[in-house]
Amino acid sequence: MKRERMLLWVVVALGLAYAYVMAPSPARAQGSGPITLNFVSFAPAANVVEFQHIKKELFDRVNQLAKGKLVINVKGGPEVIPPFNLGAAVKNGTIDMACIPNAFFEDLVPGVGVTHLSSFTAVEERKNGVFEALGEIYKKAGMFYLGRGQATEHGYFMMFLNKPVEKQSDFKGLRLGGSTSFHGQFKELGGVASTLQTTEYNTAMERGQVDGLTSSVYIATAYGLQSVTKYVILPGFWRSSVALPVNLAKWNKIPSDLRKLMISEMAAYEAKFAPYELEQRNLFIKRFTDAGVKLINLSPDAARWFVTASTEGAWKYAQERQPGDIIPKMRQLLTKK
């Protein structure tokens, strides 16, 4: 009897030991599946340059190099989360990361609403301390700044009008719409500013609610402005304002090797995007001219005034919206000496 009991205890002890050895530790269990980062863009999925390109050239590449340890899950565009809600969605963890124009969430990250006015390329910003300085600002808002979702050269934004302009006085009184990033420009040019969601652009132009608006040629194309616009004004101005923030709590849970991979691939993507975008910009402008839209190339004097007024107006408006020293500090940070 005693021998049977002893044998029973040995079997139980061996069973418990086996279970202990074979059971995954908490850390192992947590890492048994891939880390998933859910991504949403402000741009529609049909937008080749602003949606499809980053998915193919950055996210798909990261997924491949991560070898199943990390997956960036592209959920979609504005149909998933309205663009003006993306910043809050990243901050509170509703989604993990997003491409967002700076004006759409500047209230959450004070100062970033002027990054499109930077004198530096994205490559230069990673070398001269601008990238790190922006990163600190994002961290205070509960986000990690991965980089510029669209690292463009100057001239990225353009004005689309239904009234012709040639000189400074022609801009006075124009009803101009767009995000708050452009309100300072509109006012400095002598126009009347109104806020429009990108999804409202086509209807506002078609119904004559505005005389024109400022946008990238890609967003303009995605929302069919070539069918409701008469003129495109050149030169263009500023860089893209799109940033790629990640929820900070989620970012901190990613193993360091995968964080390094994402940062490295983001920097490489920024360097490749600028020449690609310039080529695409010209092709998309041709879509407008092919549709019968007229290009208005301002004279050198008018062009100089137009770009300067647009930029100064943007800085002034930013200061009005965010009194204090944050905007002067940002101007010093983003301006070549």
Rank of each mutant, 00 (worst) to 15 (best):
P26W: 08
A27W: 07
R28L: 10
Q30H: 14
Q30E: 15
G31M: 15
S32D: 08
S32W: 05
S32E: 07
S32M: 09
G33P: 05
P34S: 08
I35Q: 05
T36M: 06
T36H: 04
L37Q: 03
N38R: 10
N38D: 07
N38W: 02
N38V: 08
N38H: 11
F39D: 00
F39Q: 09
V40L: 03
S41F: 05
S41C: 04
F42N: 10
A43S: 14
P44Q: 07
P44W: 00
P44C: 01
A45N: 08
A46L: 04
A46T: 12
N47T: 12
V49L: 12
V49D: 07
V49K: 08
E50H: 03
F51A: 13
Q52S: 10
H53L: 14
H53I: 08
K55T: 06
E57H: 13
L58F: 08
F59C: 05
D60W: 00
R61E: 15
R61C: 08
V62W: 03
Q64W: 01
L65H: 05
A66W: 00
A66R: 04
K67P: 03
K67R: 15
G68F: 12
K69H: 14
K69A: 13
L70W: 00
V71I: 14
I72Y: 02
N73Q: 13
N73W: 01
V74C: 03
V74G: 01
K75Y: 00
K75M: 02
P78T: 05
E79H: 04
E79P: 12
V80F: 00
I81C: 07
I81T: 07
I81Q: 02
I81E: 06
P82E: 02
F84T: 13
F84Y: 12
F84N: 11
N85K: 13
N85Q: 10
